[in-house]
Amino acid sequence: MDERQLENLAVSLKTPSFVFDTDILKARAAHVAEKVKPAKLCFAIKANPFLLQAMDTEVERYEVCSPGEFHICVKNGVKMEKIVLSGVNKEYEDVRYAMEQGVQHFTAESQQQFYLMNRCAEELDKQVQILLRVTSGNQFGMSEADVTELIQRRAEYSHLTIRGLQYFTGTQKKQIKKIAGEVAYIEDFIQKLEEKEGFVSQELEFGPGLGVPYFTKDDFEEDEKLLDAFTEIFKEERPYEVTFEMGRFLTASCGYYLTKIMDQKINDAVNVCIVDGGINHVNYYGQNMAMKTPILSYFPQHELEEKETEWTVYGSLCTVADILLKKLVLKDARVGDYLVFHNIGAYSVTEGIYLFLSRKMPAIYLYSEKKGAELVRDQLETWTLNMER
């Protein structure tokens, strides 16, 4: 999408709103999928559930981490064989419902989860594939000892097949040395399980957490370099199937956030812009709001005068924390002009503090060259959720 098209959208659509360019998304996913072959690609839908259908032809699996995300998949007609149900705190009703719907692949985050899946599978007489998640020291996954114990007792669970391991340590990693160390660790554990327990892994699901550039001073070729270095680690064929779970790395570049300047003033020699959005919508910078400047477009709606001014851009929340940008230089900015934030396709659409101060939630549009902008969710009032009934 070029700047002319982007300005047309900013002027014609409601603000604040998100626009996700599915052409960019599909091209990005296809490029990554080609790079990582023969490994499979798994889309972590928590990054952006609005892109579920657009990704269907581009990925072989969806990582689903909550009952709500699973209901989204059911409503969207996702093939159950493409889902791996993951996440902590899986409850009986949720696991049983997923199995009833036809989900065949699960991750076990604890021994208790493993036993719960076995119970549901026995009750429904289902055969289920399990990936045992190995912890990296946080609340996710299991210790090597717990994983080993389950593998030692695997013959006791006739309805469960332990297919292999799952490993993910975090996101926005930009040092290939760190990622390589994680790969070496989990593959060494796979080897130990084979040598000591006679367990041959059929699959490794690995989340590399590759970082993406966001800010004006970032190297915007860095993510491609990182992807090349990562695929170099996996250039040799493994004796087991490899699946890469990705979210941000696939979706960040396809998103735009549209907001409009609603008020201006000078407070203690600081030029202040108030926009109709805010930090309740924009949360993709890793808590770097106002400390760094993201890529954005400015679309004035008047004839420009030749003057540049430095602005602090605030959102519409009644909190001093609602600062989007500091020292943003704009030429002749006025009320009614538009700011469009780029690379906001991951997380902000669901991760913002949307109920704070009972502001409207943004509208959501999907855009493609073929179909133009399609409204997939209108702006939503939230005040009814913040009151006694």
Rank of each mutant, 00 (worst) to 15 (best):
Y157K: 01
V103G: 13
L375T: 07
H159N: 12
G336R: 06
A184T: 15
H31P: 04
Y115S: 05
G87M: 04
K14E: 15
R377Q: 11
V88H: 07
L6Q: 10
V147W: 06
I266Q: 11
A229E: 15
A54T: 08
Y367D: 07
V335L: 00
Y97V: 11
T107V: 05
Q301D: 00
A321V: 10
E308M: 11
K235Q: 15
E381P: 00
T161G: 00
I261V: 08
R61H: 15
A47I: 06
P362K: 01
G170S: 04
L296E: 07
K192C: 10
V183G: 07
T319W: 02
D268R: 13
V242E: 06
V270Y: 04
F70V: 08
I233A: 09
V84L: 03
N138G: 14
G102R: 12
Y240I: 10
T309A: 04
G170D: 01
K37F: 03
Q101V: 13
K37G: 03
L330S: 04
E221I: 06
C73H: 00
H159M: 06
R28I: 05
I130A: 07
G181C: 11
E224L: 11
T243A: 13
P300H: 06
E122K: 15
K90Y: 04
N8W: 08
E3W: 05
A27K: 11
Q53D: 15
F50C: 05
Q113P: 08
V329G: 02
K371T: 05
F220P: 10
E245I: 15
T148R: 15
H281A: 12
V84I: 12
F50A: 10
I83N: 00
E241T: 14
V313R: 02
G77I: 09
D223T: 11
F230W: 13
L355K: 12
K79Q: 03
R133H: 00
A44G: 00
L9M: 11
G286Y: 08
S316W: 07
N267D: 15
Q127F: 11
E91D: 12
R133N: 08
K177H: 13
T171A: 11
D2M: 00
L193V: 11
V212D: 03
K173H: 15
G277T: 08
P362E: 06
E149F: 09
K40F: 03
Q191P: 02
G87K: 03
K82Q: 09
L150Y: 02
V212M: 01
K79D: 06
A346I: 06
I24W: 02
V103Q: 12
L324V: 02
K225C: 13
M262I: 14
Y314A: 04
E93Y: 13
G211N: 05
T319R: 04
F70H: 08
E351I: 04
Y365S: 03
A155T: 14
R119S: 08
E194L: 14
K40H: 00
Q172G: 06
A108S: 12
A27G: 14
I261H: 01
G209I: 03
Q191D: 14
Q172K: 08
R4K: 13
A44W: 03
F341E: 03
Y257S: 05
A54N: 03
A229C: 12
L258H: 11
Q152C: 12
I353G: 09
H342N: 06
V272S: 05
V200W: 12
L85Y: 07
D146N: 15
M117N: 05
D146F: 10
Y285A: 10
A180S: 14
A180G: 14
F50V: 04
N386M: 01
